[in-house]
């Protein structure tokens, strides 16, 4: 690992106004950023410190963590969802990793931070999946759509209060009740505006 993360952390601490909680070393470093400053932190990391690839953006639902085993929940009081941004600083010439970094962002309720789609285009699909599976919305994406589930799905499946055997309401064909005979109009392709 050729990038010194201590200087990066100092820069980010300055940006966020408070030292970030850290754990892990080397390629497994994890820093906790406030959700409101997540976008700014990503932007700084990308433009100043060479973190050019968003390897992953995912979410963890910590409701009920440690209930059976008594393990302490890492969530600050009241927070339920944790977004994890995984960044890589890749050297395009040698193909070696200068650094890997994970940013944890605790989400207030289910209103997430600003979308990272302008920095990393793959965040578009990743955020759609987070919304689909967890219901965490992104503040500048009011028209976010589902990606893995069908549009009429009710609920957010990976939440801890969604039982795995839950049933969904049955859905019919798009326009009105089922018809006996298909007509020409049903088969003409519709251009979606």
């Amino acid at each position: 690992m050729s990038l010194e993360l201590s200087s990066v952390k100092a820069d980010l601490d300055a940006f966020c106004g408070a030292p970030l909680a850290a754990r892990g070393t080397g390629f497994d470093t994890v820093w906790t950023v406030p959700a409101a400053q997540a976008h700014g932190a990503l932007e700084r990391l990308k433009s100043r410190h060479g973190f050019n690839m968003l390897a992953d953006l995912t979410c963890v639902d910590l409701q009920g963590f440690g209930k059976e085993t008594g393990a302490p929940s890492p969530a600050p009081a009241g927070a339920r969802f944790k977004l994890v941004y995984r960044l890589s600083a890749l050297d395009p010439a040698t193909g070696l990793l200068n650094a890997r970094l994970a940013l944890d962002a605790w989400v207030d309720g289910d209103a997430g931070p600003v979308s990272a789609g302008d920095l990393f285009p793959c965040a578009d699909w990743l955020e759609r999946e987070v919304w689909d599976m967890f219901g965490v919305s992104f503040s500048d994406r009011p028209d976010i759509t589902r990606i893995l589930m069908y549009p009429e799905f009710v609920g957010h499946p990976l939440r801890k209060d969604y039982p795995i055997k839950k049933r969904q309401p049955l859905i019919g064909p798009p326009d009105g009740p089922p018809r006996e005979r298909l007509t020409e109009a049903d088969l003409r392709p519709r251009i979606v505006e």
């Binding site: 390897a55 992953d56 995912t58 963890v60 639902d61 963590f65 440690g66 059976e68 085993t69 008594g70 393990a71 994890v84 995984r86």
Partner: peptide
């Protein structure tokens, strides 16, 4: 890059498994 992000809370089953 196939990544596995695994979260445990000490039980006999995973708390979260994320496949990248």
């Amino acid at each position: 890059e196939l990544g596995f992000h695994v979260v445990s809370d000490g039980r006999d089953r995973a708390w979260r498994v994320r496949v990248r």
